[in-house]
Design a protein around this nucleic acid. Structure first.
Length: 129
RNA sequence: CCAGCCGGCCGGGCGGCCGCUCCCGUCACAUGUCGAAAGACGGCGGGGGAGGAAAGUCCGGGCUCCACGGAGAAACGGUGCCGGAUAACGUCCGGCGGGGGCGACCCCAGGGAAAGUGCCACAGAAAGCAGACCGCCCCGCCUGUCGUUCGGCUCGCGCGAACUGGCCGACGCGAGGAAGAGAGCCGAAGGAUCGGCGGGGUAAGGGUGAAAGGGUGGGGUAAGAGCCCACCGCGUCGCUGGCAACAGCGGCGGCAGGGCAAACCCCACCGGGAGCAAGACCGAAUAGGGACGACGCGGCGUGGGGCAGCGCCCCACCGCCAGCCUUUCUCCGGGCCAGUCGUCCGGGUGGGUUGCUUGAGGCGGUCCGCAAGGGCCGUCCCAGAGGAAUGGUCGCCGUGCGGCAUUGUCGCGCACAGAACCCGGCUUACAGGCCGGCUGGCACU
């Protein structure tokens, strides 16, 4: 049974209010929905990353990486939004899925450290559409 | 073999593992949800699944909705040689004209400049009722210069003769025959030439410019000029060929108002508007809409009523005038014309379903046509997503570059680019490769 994906623009916008985690290939926004239904995810690939072909490729690699190795580390009740960077294109697939797993695991951990990272001034905003 | 021109086509291939989506078949046996059931989600099997440009969204259509009563005018946008193709086009094909190339071929927004307006910078004398800077020519005047002839003077060279020892050398002569050498100055005559000034002729030449009022050659002339002649160009008339654009030939005209219309403009032809987020159906909350009832409602006019009357108020007609909508305007025609409260009714956003892929369709054959294309026959069904599928990953092969090396191995790379209702075009992007035809060279037979 495949994971559900986010469908509405409102859901993407809401995820921005969640915790944020940076990485070399992407950053993740995670929002606790307050129920216990299975995790959902959405992919954001902005137009400045590349043309349509490259954006498609990024989306497909990420989706495949989540399907193969990321699913297990996602927690129920949370919406994840993964905002891709251009580096996804050149990265080896193994490295990509490893990175993805590491990030999900980090999300699941107690938020002492993450809370600290979040306090750091981070006022950069990114469009999700 | 080299260089080039044109047209067509492909644009990585094969396989393993794991996925996505749509369709068809099948199962309800196992598990879960919904359901009375059929069945749906689902399991299993099979099949389809990005492009030549899917792109830019620049034209033309189909399809859909909106608007659409008639007449006239205007405005706006587009197209612009001729004929054909086509559903249509600004596209395509075949011609014509102009330009380029040795050639195969390529390029051209290619109606009207004698309706009018405007512009033609800089340079240049002059840029639009043409003009005269230099130059060329003629005439007059002035001053100088150079030849010729004549006369005079000065200097120099030489010869001769008498005399003579020698020297000096008067005189004469110097284009005659004995001989040879001239030069300068002054004056006069007439001529040539240059310069200056003035008057006129000219548009050949120079120079400026994108463009200077046909071109080349000859005659002609003071110098020149279509002034005259030949050829070319141009205009015009006629004939011939062609459906036509146009071409050819002949006559006539001595040549006329140059360019820009991708400046306004004129002429001819075409054109309603918006787009699948169109539209249709099912349909929450909230806000708004319509009908009926009550209260209430532009101006003038006409009729009726109330008050004793000036006048005011009420009702009706809807006659006129306003206002709004009818396409921008005009005329005619048509429609609408406050608001508040109560009752009832239907629309409608989020969402879902549909439109949604069988079509000016592809492929093959055949016939017609130079071709674009068309007719007929056969055959095939070939993506339909919706935060958006059509893939991810690994291996082998192919191919390009580089290293080692010598035909193996290693490394890096393999273009432009992703359907969103569908077609016909245009334009733009694109690594590499294949096929066919043609042209110009070189070599060999």
């Amino acid at each position: 049974m495949a994971l559900h994906t986010l469908k509405k623009r409102a859901e993407f916008v809401a995820a921005r209010k969640g915790r944020r985690l940076n990485g070399p290939f992407f950053f993740i926004e995670a929002l606790r929905r307050g129920d216990t239904s299975p995790a959902r995810y959405g992919l954001t690939v902005t137009r400045k990353v590349g043309n349509a072909v490259e954006r498609n490729r990024i989306r497909r690699r990420l989706r495949e990486a989540i399907r193969v190795s990321g699913e297990a580390d996602m927690l129920p009740g949370i919406d994840y939004v993964i905002v891709a960077r251009r580096e996804v294109l050149g990265a080896p697939f193994a490295e990509l899925s490893q990175e993805l797993r590491r990030r999900f695991a980090r999300m699941a951990e107690p938020r002492r450290e993450t809370a600290e990272t979040q306090r750091r001034p981070n006022r950069r905003r990114s469009r999700s559409d």
